[in-house]
Design a protein around this nucleic acid. Structure first.
Lengths: 195, 195
DNA sequence: TGTACATCAGTGAACGCGCGTTCACTGATGTAC
DNA sequence: TGTACATCAGTGAACGCGCGTTCACTGATGTAC
């Protein structure tokens, strides 16, 4: 059947958004195309009208994930009291909420290992995502020069992603809370002079 | 055929060591049992004389990986000038060498995401690995109380693992170096008062 | 000392399942005339 | 305005492959007698 003009683009967006959630949540190798499509009330065959293959979907899901997290952190910045923007970024990123919701969380935490290992093509997408993230929050970073602030943003986002992964991997509730709290306290103290 | 007394234990150790390398290098889902065994001049059937399944092997490979990295970092501490132990730990962990050798590197960086997602059983092994790592390097951490030093160790190892993963995922050489150098500089400055 | 039997690490064919991708087909709508 | 044809998102059977696990079997060595 032929579909209305914008229909195809909408379906495509749905697939990317669903994939972005699932890939982060389970890892892309645990997300079969057929099931992804089935849950969107479609069949697997149609997938290839939208994408050349799973590789391409991973790419786009990765970019989508970066955009979502950036938007979420920018909201936190909006809500923050003036001068406390960086603290808001840290507390939002290392929140219990973010820790518990890997499927909607930062791709540096959820997808970096996979990207590094298998997804040759996605690595440039990853670069771009990181650069945009750094650019978006550069203004709130400490440092004398732009280069200093860029470096600080890279180390902060990389470091927080690692703390998050460590917290997620433990089975001990208390240890998990200690890691998150410790991370928040450390990064706030190290980077937020006023707080 | 029947084999000499210690033979079985030796083969088992070989399998665990090989798995520890490969699981970190490619992710456990990309390492078929049959190929692992073939490369050890064995066949896949024999695997089940040593392990109940892949899950158990993952467990033991994870523990082995923790032990290897701890040993490597303790060597770095041995070589360090007195008072510069923590700096040696940081510089070794965030070295180009470690970054380039994921297969022999830290499991917090290479296996935390997978452990968090799929390996329910391995999460307690992960806990134990982390606790041992914290205990082994507690003496070199800054902090007034033991709890403070423990928290610092957790945040440091989690953070460094994240920085390492970020560096590994980029395809841009320069960005990778910036991340590693930035990480070293940041953690040394934040934690090593004397340096 | 010699012989019959038990043991068990290792072998390799086979099973069952999951999954990415292909492809001939469908059928509602748009377009040409 | 009406009719024939083209388009193409979506369908679902089928293909091919990889892989974890099982199982009947092998055969060298240890053990019982």
């Amino acid at each position: 059947m032929r579909y209305p003009a914008e229909h195809k683009e909408q379906v495509r967006r749905q697939i990317v958004r669903a994939a972005a959630r699932r890939f982060r949540g389970r890892g892309s190798e645990r997300v079969p195309i057929a099931q992804l499509m089935r849950d969107l009330r479609l069949t697997h065959g149609g997938f290839y009208r939208h994408f050349t293959g799973k590789e391409q979907l991973f790419d786009e899901a990765l970019a989508e994930s970066f955009a979502q997290v950036r938007a979420r952190l920018l909201e936190a910045v909006e809500r923050a009291a003036p001068g406390h923007e960086l603290e808001a970024i840290i507390r939002t990123y290392l929140s219990e909420q973010h820790c518990a919701n890997i499927a909607e969380g930062c791709p540096v935490a959820a997808l970096a290992t996979e990207t590094a290992r298998h997804r040759k093509r996605a690595r440039t997408t990853f670069d771009e995502g990181i650069r945009e993230q750094v650019a978006a929050f550069l203004a709130f970073m400490p440092g004398a020069t732009t280069a200093d602030r860029e470096r600080m943003a890279l180390v902060l986002f990389g470091g927080m992603a690692g703390v998050l992964n460590l917290a997620r991997a433990t089975s001990d509730e208390k240890l998990r809370r200690t890691v998150l709290e410790g991370g928040r306290a450390f990064y706030v103290r190290a980077l937020c002079p006023a707080s």
